[in-house]
Amino acid sequence: MTELIARRSVLYLVGAVITGLPVTLARAEDDPWPGLHQDVFRNRPISEEDGLVTLEAPVRAEDAALVPLTVKIDRDKASAPLTLTLLIDKNPAPVAATFFFGEGSGEIVLSTRVRIDAYSNVRAVVETSAGTLHMTTRYVKASGGCSAPAQKDAELADAELGQMQLRQFDGGLPASTSREAQLMIRHPNYSGMQMNQLTGYYIPAKFITDVEVKRGDALVFRMEGGISLSADPNIRFTFRTTGPGDVLTVAAKDTDGRVLRGSWPVKSGKES
């Protein structure tokens, strides 16, 4: 990163000298957002902090390799379907994940856990079907999350790879058809920045790239994820039920082409 920044600085400097403008290096170095705005959203206008999307994140992360984020999208303000992109400005791969919501999604409340490599802005950007972009930003103090070992217990990492669990929770509002569930996938989600503890070489990146959750044939969400998601990817989400007999199916893929599948009948009543 430092090299990139240095190179950019030189470009800015050269540009400044040629154009005779004052040199404002500090801003260019400190803030990766203008570049991300260009690369990820092609500089389209983004409405900030307008209440459509809210993001809950710790001010100081207890564990930089496991930072919980919760996003809420106000459905009344957003026309479906929509996408949600989670970005961590200072991470080596700033786009942590993109979620595409389908007709099976309810009121959208989504939690996941991410790695944060340096004190950084964390952003949730929503695109509505009307094509408008909405963003909320939180600053999180955490560092070293991408190179921290995937598991505290080294042996567990590979032994249980691929296990999936789906937990279901009581929806809360009795009248609501919106329910909540939590998908847990045992996967080290190697970032490519961790050492192999036996060889001392870097472990190649190996991570969950795709997760698709459906209720029957209806898409709840599809996620494209990267190395910024924590080990053992964990997504807590809401979905809409249609009544008894609903089944949630999950298909997940990793960079090795490994496909994980599971299905769970939707429970009525209490979480189990």
């Binding site: 990163m1 090299e3 795709d210 893929k253 960079t255």
Partner: peptide, 23 residues
């Protein structure tokens, strides 16, 4: 699909990726 994913989710520009490798 995998190729597209890698392009999206690893650093998005070739120069960024190259600099990560160098780093």
């Amino acid at each position: 699909l995998q190729k597209r994913m890698t392009a999206t989710l690893l650093p998005s520009r070739p120069d960024l990726r190259a600099s990560l490798r160098r780093y």
